[in-house]
């Protein structure tokens, strides 16, 4: 087995664009679920809107990169409003149902053959030089990063630079928001919205603000994915990505500022590491073919990771940063 390559792959992944994307998506869910108690199962939808907002803004409507980003932000806010107005007055589980459906509607909408002239259909928006060219032109790096075991291409290096700046900003904003009286109302809503209402707070307005802010984090994740892959592909926004983001959030610890980032590093790091180990073991013939064949590595790594996650949730249900005492509180 080539341990050098395995370590190199894993270390590069730890700071890579996937960690950035999962961090941002989970940071949005942290605002929604961790702090406000909104069960948003449609984060992939927000991610898709961010990705397609920028990609379609540039490729389809010929906007500049800056305008396309604004277009994506406006699109995201519109989605949050559309989603929130009918559902935020309802009980939490209704929001969960509606959001998971909305995520799928959006994915199928972007995927549909009828609209492929604008959205690229099932192939996604790619190959169009306009889409990432402006972003690439802004790249301040002269070449790829190749330090020790870490290797990143020039393009990815630029994507993750922007990405980590966004993550840092997101952490700062989350921290500022959640230590303020605004954050206190938000956490109060998570605990019991009727009580907060009885104290004269407009719960609906706060939930809407939370939905928009968390949605913007999700959209930022989508933009990073689109830029890194140089394509906006509908299959990158399937429902499982919402659940991966939830996994990341719970892994790090919900309602903790650094939870999503640490969760994303562990989740992506473990996936890449196990994948590399399994592939190495397969090529060395260490795993007999009646156990698994080479095509099954992708699935088996998820089985193994799932097992580890289950153990983690059993023995450390509060996540890495969580407070077990808090979890055990009688939430009457």
């Amino acid at each position: 087995m080539d341990w050098g390559s395995i370590i190199s792959q894993t270390l590069s992944a730890l700071i890579g664009w996937e960690v950035v994307a999962y961090s941002l998506a989970a940071m949005g869910l942290n605002i929604h679920f961790g702090y406000t108690g909104l069960l948003n199962f449609g984060q992939a939808g927000f991610m898709a809107v961010g990705a397609y907002g920028v990609a379609m803004g540039i490729s389809t409507f010929g906007l500049s990169l800056g305008m396309a980003v604004l277009f994506a932000i406006a699109f995201t806010i519109l989605l949050a409003l559309l989603l929130g107005i009918p559902t935020l007055r309802l009980r939490a589980d209704y929001l969960a149902i509606v959001t998971i459906a909305t995520g799928e509607i959006l994915r199928l909408f972007f995927r549909s053959a009828t609209l492929s002239e604008w959205t690229g259909g099932s192939d996604g928006l790619q190959g169009n030089p306009l889409f990432t060219q402006q972003f690439k032109n802004l790249n301040p790096y002269g070449g790829p990063l190749d330090v020790g075991p870490i290797f990143l291409t020039q393009h990815i290096l630029w994507v993750i630079t922007v990405g980590w700046v966004l993550v840092a900003l997101g952490i700062l904003v989350t921290w500022l928001l959640m230590r303020s009286p605004w954050g206190r109302v938000i956490k109060g809503i998570r605990e019991d919205e009727e009580a907060v209402r009885s104290l004269g707070k407009n719960v609906f307005a706060y939930k809407m603000q939370s939905l928009i802010i968390g949605g913007l984090f999700g959209a930022a994740a989508g933009v990073i994915i689109a830029l890194a892959a140089s394509s906006a592909n509908p299959d990158n926004f399937a429902p499982q990505y919402t659940f991966f983001a939830y996994t990341v959030l719970l892994l790090g610890g919900a309602a903790r500022v650094f939870g999503p980032v640490v969760g994303a590093v562990i989740f992506v790091g473990a996936l890449v590491f196990v994948d590399a180990i399994l592939k190495g073991a397969m090529s060395d013939g260490l795993i007999p073919t009646w156990v698994m064949d080479g095509d099954q590595v992708g699935q088996v790594r998820f089985i193994l990771i799932g097992l580890v996650l289950m153990l983690l949730m059993i023995f450390r249900p509060q996540g890495i940063f969580g407070d077990k005492k808090e979890l055990q509180l009688d939430a009457r």
Binding site: D192, A195, R197, S198, L199, G200, K201, D330, R332
Partner: peptide, 20 residues
């Protein structure tokens, strides 16, 4: 919430303390 702001505030039969 507007009723509460006018100065009429209620409590609940099942206490709604914000646990966490």
């Amino acid at each position: 919430h507007r009723v509460a702001r006018r100065g009429m505030v209620r409590t609940f039969q099942l206490t709604k303390s914000l646990a966490r």
